[in-house]
Design a protein around this nucleic acid. Structure first.
Length: 262
DNA sequence: ATGGTGGTTCAACCA
């Protein structure tokens, strides 16, 4: 089973690009972030035509997440528990049922958190605590699951071309990195880093200042696997070439192959 | 230190 995550930065602006990528890459399950539309505005039929089932958790104008799956989608939950006041559409969870195996998939768009020191940074850290709580709950079930999405965290200096440029950014704060490390220390595997220990693996290049042309990237989109899923990890990678297409998202897809039938 | 780009919605917000 090929899993993927992609911050699409607007599904309406990116539809043709997304369809081209899906035809090329052929993932079985995709988590999308920043669809930037309400559920009714999501182009479900265009994805259905490529064989995908669709579940969305949308919002007007901002945020919004979705799951596409060639396998049936079951038991969808929308929103991350732990804050009844939180109305931002950043989390969707579902079970994708394959032949002889099921995988719980959580698609997430973690808050950016800038500027540091304000409400937005506090919201980011609180959100990460809520995510840790949910991860602990999922781990207790001892079943295969994956957390995929735009984590808006640069885990280590090696995950940025110029780490010094991010020292005052919420994505690279010690608190953000520590909360990310807490997730991996629970026993979740960072699939992309596990398969690619080398430097220079990035998933985001800013639209500004020629970041792509200079390869001034950061790695902030991640796939975290539970032990039961990590045991079945084959390969992982990025579809970096998509960043060079016409009208690209500022993020590129990240994928991982998991052999659930082994 | 500032401005550089892009999406959504409609002057401003978010990233």
């Amino acid at each position: 089973m090929k899993l993927a995550t992609w911050n699409i930065n607007g599904v309406k602006a990116r539809l043709e690009t997304a369809l081209s990528w899906l035809k090329d890459s052929g993932p079985d399950v995709v988590c999308l972030q920043e669809i930037k539309t309400v559920d009714e505005g999501f182009p479900t039929e265009a994805f259905a035509d490529l064989g995908y089932n669709v579940a969305t958790h949308g919002q007007k104008g901002f945020n919004g997440v979705a799951i596409l799956s060639k396998l049936p989608i079951e038991d969808v939950t929308r929103g991350l528990a732990g804050d009844g006041e939180d109305t931002q559409a950043r989390y969707i969870e579902a079970t994708v049922a394959g032949k002889g195996a099921a995988l719980r998939v959580a698609g997430l768009y973690l808050p950016n958190g800038n500027p540091i020191g304000g409400d937005k940074f506090a919201y980011k850290l609180a959100w990460m605590q809520r995510l840790e709580h949910r991860a602990r709950g999922l781990l207790a079930e001892e079943t295969p699951f994956a957390l995929l999405g735009d984590f808006n965290v640069i885990p280590e200096p090696v995950d940025a071309k110029r780490p010094e440029a991010w020292v005052h950014d919420a994505l690279f704060q010690p608190e953000s990195r520590s909360a990310y490390r807490t997730l991996t220390h629970l026993g979740l595997m960072d699939a992309l880093r596990a398969c690619h220990p080398e430097p220079g693996v990035y998933t985001f290049w800013d639209y500004q200042a020629g970041s792509w042309q200079k390869n001034d990237g950061i790695r902030i989109d991640h796939i975290l696997l539970s032990p039961q899923a990590a045991d079945r990890l084959g390969s992982a990678g990025t579809d970096q070439h998509v960043r060079g297409w016409e009208k690209p998202s500022d993020h590129v897809p990240v994928w991982a192959e998991i052999d659930l039938e082994r």
